[in-house]
Each structure stands twice: as structure tokens, then as C-alpha cells.
Design a protein around this nucleic acid. Structure first.
Lengths: 187, 187
DNA sequence: AAAAAAGTATACTGATCTGTTTAGTGTTGA
DNA sequence: TCAACACTAAACAGATCAGTATACTTTTTT
């Protein structure tokens, strides 16, 4: 992978996150990445392809960092399951937290079968699968049900943190999640 | 209130919802509303003011429709509290469901103290207050805690429905909400 | 009936949008 | 070494962006 290409992807992620997708032009990204527009169009055939590349790169990077943070945060499987909200809280506390790139992308590109939408759905699907695995490790029987609930709570806490500008929703979501998880473990 | 002005606000809500805020220009809105650009700038000093007017109008309209739907859906206070997810499910099932206008707005305008952000925060705050009222009517003691949980579940179900393209998340969120509400009623 | 307000149509500004073109410079691997 | 590749710089195309200007017509209010 070319170095310039990576600079373009990194810059795109940064600017799209902060200013939206229609809100950032190719010129801006190229300038910020220290690369000419020609080079940008050498690596990506269109703005849409750059958006896709940015989303795909962020997908891998984000999930990897998220999983490592959960692992590092707690040892116990039960605490790890709820630990996703501790990691979320840490994420929301970042000065440069602008919500979820994928949610924001869908907000601007609503066509039902677009490639952008597919990448976003794939990300959410993999996150849900990861939560289901954590639930299984914690000894929960109905992993699908709890994964769905916790995934919805996580999405809700992301959006709430984004709108309110505070990370508190992660703590609130964790409280609710704990009640649901404890109930699920009683059965 | 002028008729043309209202046409502009209605059209703005429709187009911003479907294509985002940066994705829709003044020309497009004016053309679609059957109004000249001059008239548009007579009623609104800038695009930003039109966005604000659209959000504020949608705020009142949406909450009113939502509350009426909840009232019409169920009689019993307990069922009404959980009924917010039935109304959400109906909302998500609309062919023209593009997620929450306010969440999508924050995704494009992330400046911490912008007027757009304030309108969005106000909307979310009023929705939370409404849920707390429903919780009180249902005989729940710790209304604040349950309102927070249900608000997060509602946000999560909105975003999940938007990304997945199906209304199912409303049903899943309702299941989790029922467990939390029943727990809260035991105390 | 007169005056004010709200509307039309159209063309314009200057900036920015995505994407292309031309012409030339480094870099690198077979 | 030399050809392919990656890159720079800068201008260009055609469309669209937010917003303004000019000149005229319709509607409403006093």
C-alpha cells in the first residue's frame, strides 16, 4: 500500500468525521493530506471510492482498537461483556469524538442498496457478532437476545453522547445493560 | 404565517431528511417548493436559518404526532410507556423513513455551540421529559432512571432501523424495555 | 384608490464542487 | 540503464454552491 494513499485515507477519515461527507471536498482532503488532486484521482477513481476506502479502513481499525481496549480493561468475562460501555465511555470522552462514522454516513447517503450502506451494515453486523461472542464467554444462554439488546443500548449511547456532548450516556447504558445481563444469567 | 414560507419549510424537511443538509441546495428546495429563490431569501436570511426553521417546525410536529399516536395506541399507562416502541415501529415502517432529522443534523454540524445543535438537544430533552411523564403515569418510582434507559433504547432502535433498513429493532428494544420497566415496578 | 408587501422571472457574482488535462519531475525495479 | 510508475504544479471544464440585483406583477392592507 502506497504511503500517499494511506495519508489520503487517514485525512479523509479525520475530515469526514468532523465535517460530514458532503461537507468536505476533494481539494480540502488533498491539500490537508499534502498530496495533489491528480495523485488522489490516481488512487481513487472518484470521491465515492475514497469514502468507501475510508469507511473500510476505519471499520478494521476501529473494531480492532475496540476489542483490544475491552480485553485490556477487564479480565473477567462478565465484566468484559459490560466493559464495552467502559470503552465506549472512553471513546465518547475524546475531544475529537464526532459520533459513529457509519451512522453519520447513512444519514447523508440513504439509498437502500448503495455500497456505502453495505459497508456500514457490515460494520454493525460484525460489532453485534462480537458482542454475542462476549455474551457466550460470560456464560449467557440466549446470546442472540442479549447481543441485540446490548447493541441497541450501545448505538443509543453513541448517539446520545454525540447529541448531548457528554460521555455520561455510556454509564447510563451500562446500568441498564447490567440489569439485562443479570436477568439473562438467572435463567 | 405565509403559505409560501410553509411550503419552503415542508419541502426543506422532506429533502433534508432524504439527502442530508449539505446534500441539498437552496435552488433545489426553491424549485421543489414552487417558489423563487428571491422569495426564499425574503423569508429566510440564509440557508442556516431555513435549516433551523425546518428543525424547529419538525420538532413541534413530530412530538405532537408521536404523543397522539401513543395515546391512540394504548389506554393503560403501563402499556403506554412501552407503547413508544410500537409507535417507533410504525414510524420505522414508513417507506420514507430516513432516521431522525436531528441525529442526522448533528452528524453534519458538529460545532459544539451552534444553534442547530441547540435545537437538536432541545428536542431530545423534551422527548426524554415526555418519557419520564409516561413512566410516572405508569406508577414507576425512579422515573428519571427509567426515562434515561428507555430514551437510550429508543435512540438505539432508531439508528439500528435506519442502518439495517428494517423496523425490527423497535420490537427488540421493546422487549428489553419491558424487562427494565418490570424490574423498576418491583421496587 | 393608493401604498405596502409579497410574489415572479432571470441574470448575475464569486466561490467551490467533482473530475480532467497538460507538462514535467522524481523514484524504483527489472 | 531505462521504462514504468508515482508524483508535483497549475490550469481548466462545466456544474452547482450561497446569496444578490434588476425589473416587473400580484396580492393584501389601509
Amino acid at each position: 500500500m502506497s504511503k500517499k494513499r494511506q495519508q489520503l485515507v487517514d485525512t479523509a477519515i479525520k475530515l469526514f468525521s468532523a465535517h460530514g461527507y458532503h461537507g468536505v471536498g476533494i481539494d480540502w482532503i488533498s491539500r490537508e493530506a499534502g498530496v495533489t488532486k491528480k495523485t488522489m484521482y490516481h488512487h481513487f477513481h472518484s470521491k465515492n471510492e475514497l469514502i468507501l476506502a475510508a469507511l473500510k479502513h476505519h471499520d478494521g481499525l476501529f473494531r480492532n482498537e475496540f476489542m483490544n481496549a475491552v480485553k485490556a480493561f477487564h479480565e473477567d468475562p462478565y465484566e468484559r461483556l459490560l466493559g464495552i460501555f467502559d470503552v465506549a465511555h472512553h471513546w465518547f470522552s475524546d475531544k475529537k469524538f464526532y459520533g459513529c462514522m457509519f451512522i453519520n454516513a447513512i444519514g447523508e447517503y440513504s439509498e437502500p442498496d448503495s455500497s456505502i450502506r453495505n459497508v456500514c451494515q457490515e460494520f454493525k453486523s460484525l460489532m453485534r457478532k462480537y458482542i454475542a461472542q462476549l455474551a457466550e464467554d460470560a456464560g449467557i444462554k440466549d446470546t442472540e437476545s442479549i447481543a441485540t439488546s446490548l447493541a441497541i443500548l450501545l448505538e443509543g449511547s453513541i448517539v446520545t453522547a454525540q447529541v448531548s456532548g457528554t460521555p455520561d450516556s455510556a454509564i447510563e447504558a451500562k446500568k441498564a445493560a447490567k440489569l439485562l445481563v443479570d436477568l439473562a444469567l438467572q435463567n
